[in-house]
């Protein structure tokens, strides 16, 4: 990724801000909708190959405006909290379409 460009999460947030501006949301409500409601980090040990390995997982919920909340399980060496929150934000916006 280019170093001069925005990260995944800030790209999503900047795109969100641009849209929220046009919707005419007041700043306080815009901030509330923009942030993820919760992000849990779980760290757990699994004994494999005669050794205890610690794994880190995240589960982030952007909003519960429609339940159940939905979102993917990604297995990636590059996963981090920002990536999970960006994906959660997109998922929650996505769920405003359809069914």
């Amino acid at each position: 990724m280019s170093h001069s460009d925005e990260s995944f999460l800030s790209s999503v947030e900047l795109m969100f801000d641009q849209a929220a501006e046009l919707v005419g949301l007041p700043d306080d409500l815009r901030h509330k909708i923009k942030v993820c409601n919760s992000t849990y980090t779980v760290r757990f040990g699994v004994r494999l190959r005669n050794k205890l390995f610690t794994f880190t997982g995240y589960r982030s919920v952007h909003s519960e405006h429609r339940e159940p909340v939905k979102g993917g399980i990604r297995y990636s060496p590059h996963a981090d909290q920002d990536e999970v929150e960006a994906l959660a934000s997109l998922m929650s916006l996505k769920r405003s379409f359809g069914y």
């Binding site: 339940e67 159940p68 909340v69 939905k70 399980i73 990604r74 297995y75 990636s76």
Partner: peptide, 11 residues
């Protein structure tokens, strides 16, 4: 009822 995961990259 509340939180239903699905596949993404690597799963």
């Amino acid at each position: 009822a509340q939180n239903v995961p699905a596949p993404d990259m690597g799963t």
